[in-house]
Amino acid sequence: MRFLLAILIIWGFTANAGEKVIITGSSTIAPVISDLAKIYEGKHSKVRIDVQTGGSSRGILDARKGLAQIGMVSRALKKNENDLKHFTLAKDGLAIIVHKSNPVTELTEDQIKQIYVKKITNWKIVNGEDKKIVVVNKAEGRSTLELFLKFFKLKNSQIKPDIIIGDNEQGIKTVSKNPNAITYVSIGAAEYNASVGVPLKLLKFKGVEAKVQNVENGTYPLMRELNLVTREAPKGLADKFIKYVLSKEASQTIKDHYFVPINKK
C-alpha cells in the first residue's frame, strides 16, 4: 500500500514537472485545438496544454497581457492588433444548402437575408417552385450562426426560423429530408455529404461555387480565418505546439472538425 502510494506521489511530481502552455479564446477554435492538444500530449508525455474558451476578444486580450501564451481568434486580425504575431491554422466557410431537387442554384446576399427574416416566404420569388420556404436556423452559441449573423449583418432576434437545429449533421439531415428547406452549414461537412450521395445542393454565392477549394484559394466570400496569436515570437512548448498545429500531420484533425486547413508550402 505504502509502496503504491510512493509510486503515485512520484508519478504525480514527474507529471507536473513538464512544461505547460495556456491557450484561451474563440470557442470556434477551442474544440479542434483541444483535440490537437490531446494528441500532442499523448506523444510528449511531459507537457500539459490547457485550452480555455472565452471568445476571440479574450484570446487577443489574454495573449497581450501574457495571461495565455497563445490566443485563439476566429477572424482576421484588425489593424490595431498588429502588435500580435498571428498564425492562420485554417479557414471556416459556410455553405448555403437546399435539397437536391430544388431548382434554385444561386441566391444573392440580399435574397438570403430576406428569406431569413421572412420577407421572402416562397421559393417562386427566387425562381424556384411554388412552395413555402422552410427556414432552418442554428441554435444560439454555434459558431456557424455567429459567422452567418456577422456576414449578413443580422441580429438573431430578426431571424424568423421554422426549425432550429444544433450541429451541422442535424442541418444536413433536415435539409436532405425536406425539399423546401434552406440552411447553412460548414462547407467541409456539406461537400463531404453531397459527395457521398446525400441529396443536398450547395448554392453558389456571389457567383462562386461553394467548394472547399474555393475557400482555400480565398475566392469564396462567406468565410473567415481561424488564427492563433502570440505576443512575441513563440518559444519553447508554445512554439513547438504551433508548429505542430500548422503541420501536415494535424490537417486531418482540422478537417475532421470541418475546417479547411491552410495549404502547407
Partner: peptide, 10 residues
C-alpha cells in the same frame, strides 16, 4: 442545443 459554447449569463 446551447450548452456547448454558452458562457456567463447564458
Amino acid at each position: 442545443l446551447e450548452m456547448a459554447y454558452a458562457m456567463g449569463t447564458h
